[in-house]
Design a protein around this nucleic acid. Structure first.
Lengths: 359, 359
DNA sequence: TTTCGCACCGAAACCAGTTTCGGCTTTACG
DNA sequence: CGTAAAGCCGAAACTGGTTTCGGTGCGAAA
């Protein structure tokens, strides 16, 4: 019983009839159960049949409806992302790139991204619970990892797959977490070595809130760089808890007011490094000559300012892409402990660092 | 034997069995069809029965699975947002707020947000088509409305509900579009009147790319302000197509280099207004005294700079909330032509505007 | 008393798929 | 040549809901 069901005839029609799996089955002279198993790579389907089904599916433009599959399988091919709305620096300019990366990669694999937001821990848990209860997502991407992250505990307790943007303080591989990260520590180390190579001997460090794991990793990188360059570690040259541009200006002033001030400062974020420009202007000194500055993130503002900020650029789009890929792999059954990636930040030289002025 | 596919993880039964509609029916001594109709407010259910069902549903914590409903109804209670990744200014700092607003409002109503991205018109159409074909979303939110917006044509042809952030150039109510907008024209008008009130007689205008509808609306508001203040319209004081900070600096310099330069400039975006600071610094004049500046958007950087930028602040969170509410209302059956909202920007006084210097 | 209509609910079909189970052919092997 | 084991596919159950259809009981009108 062939039924030539012609689809999408007149484009003027409101909606052309979708191709369903039963249409495919009819066209092939098979039952829909066989077609379903063929499409899902069951082993009890003859290779030749599998090929015919795949061919006809492509020809007829068949695409399964995710929610109809979900009724049985419980999986909807959707990634979840919970934004923390009241985070200190509000994600800055990275968010668009990051989202673009996730959605592009997800789209390639036929997945989608569902975004939610929360402004407190309770709300986050309620939101996640609802998304899971309604089966709106299959797994989560967690940005802005903290040293001790309650989200990790929460999702593990619920046995929900997830990937982290950034490592936690939970320790090594034994915890079976899946993550992607940019090696900020390595970048800080390279920044120190670069400055030391230029002749600087007193190099300061301005870091982020130590609640976030990356802040600690970057500080450690700074210390490693000092050690490697054979420079002493002076605690008075380290500042933590510096979040925004105004903080960065204050921290810079404090460092410059020291009895034996640094001639160069490494900032763990560009936003705070811009504060150094404000401080320099306020006291009439020149960035890149009187004070060398290196930042991290590669924000657009850093390239606009004069002199352009030397920085280690993070590719947020790449981060989004890889996180999506890692989560999808995990949802397809890959063991989480194999899904880890660490990439390096890219040095983006500007004019904010140079040899120290010799007095 | 078995499949080559993903191995299904052994469910350790961490989550207690969901409450299904049949569980509810059993507990009530009714059939699931009756329960379903009761929950969906069918008229052939006795009020007393409806009450009992609602009560028991609350007690047992029943929540329907959206995708199971969708198999029959075709609606998944999800809003769609397509970000244009390669937009000129990359959304700036608004995106997080905007997303927060959408998702918070959607969440209250039991809806979710699905985000996709595209870097070209073709990709956008492919993405939208896929989301619709897979029934992953019920309607769309379109940010960054253009004068002639192909997205509008595209979605209308497909008979898909959507709301716009910003009005189009398509004209009035007869087009049956649903939108939310902040009255930038009104703000520009108020800015001009404020400056005129301070004594300024030559007031320049620096606008965005005229491809975007809001750019034209704001320029018109500027012109209205001039007319209302009894000031002549001088085309040489108008600049359009100014997108970023560097552009803003250039535009400011051009205006200041005029034979009869303005003493005040209204910028249609804060980002470009910051360029005026750069220009002022370059030629050693002081913003707020030698040159008055008023911006629009209310970005954080504007409050950090010295002197703080006087600006008309836009509440992106509110925009997201209202757009979500409007779209949900439309999806629930409200006629699109009644779903329109125009709100005013909030004046945020800084130190960047003052009386002109009397020579 | 009969008839009609209405309010209310159950039975069953339906949506678009997935998965289990069983049976009919082949093929392999003794 | 007989039998067991694969290989391959169809039939039917199943997922969690919604919606159509039909039937019962009861009150009101004729």
């Amino acid at each position: 019983m062939e039924e030539i069901r012609d689809t999408k005839v007149s484009e003027g029609a409101p909606v052309s009839r979708r191709v369903r799996i039963s249409d495919l089955a009819d066209a092939l002279g098979l039952t829909k159960s066989t077609v379903s198993r063929a499409l899902n790579n069951y082993s009890d389907i003859a290779p030749e049949t599998r090929r015919r089904v795949a061919e006809m599916a492509a020809k007829m433009g068949y695409a399964p409806m995710p929610y109809a599959q979900a009724v049985r399988t419980g999986r909807v091919r959707a990634l979840g992302l919970v934004l923390e709305i009241d985070a200190p620096d509000r994600y800055g300019p990275f968010l668009a790139e990051f989202l673009g990366g996730i959605t592009q990669e997800a789209s390639l694999e036929g997945w989608t991204l569902t975004v939610a937001s929360s402004s407190s821990r309770e709300e986050m848990e309620a939101t996640v619970t609802r998304l899971l209860q309604e089966h709106k997502v299959d797994g989560f991407i967690l940005p802005r990892t903290r040293v001790a992250d309650h989200r990790v505990d929460f999702l593990r307790a619920k046995h929900v797959p997830f990937v982290l943007y950034g490592r936690t303080g939970y320790g090594g591989p034994e915890h079976g977490l899946s993550w992607f990260d940019v090696d900020g520590g390595q970048a800080m180390r390279a920044a120190v070595l670069r400055l030391a190579g230029l002749g600087h001997r007193r190099i300061g460090f301005v870091g982020y809130a130590e609640e976030y794991n990356f802040a600690l990793l970057r500080r450690d990188g700074y210390r490693e760089g000092l050690a490697e360059a054979g420079l002493p570690l002076d605690p008075s040259l380290e500042r933590l808890g510096v979040i925004n541009r105004a903080d960065g200006m204050r921290a810079t002033e404090e460092l410059l007011d020291l009895p034996d001030p640094p001639t160069a400062i490494v900032f763990s974020t560009d936003m705070t490094a811009l504060g150094a420009y404000d401080a320099a202007r306020a006291r009439g000194i020149t960035i890149g000559r009187d004070l060398s500055v290196i930042g991290y993130d590669g924000i657009p503002d850093g390239r606009m300012i004069d002199p352009p900020l030397t920085s280690f650029a993070v590719d947020s789009r790449q981060a989004g892409e890889r996180l999506a890929a890692l989560l999808i792999a995990q949802l397809r059954g890959a063991p989480a402990e194999n899904l880890r990636e660490l990439v390096e930040a890219r040095l983006q030289p500007g004019g904010s660092d140079g040899p120290p002025v010799t007095t």
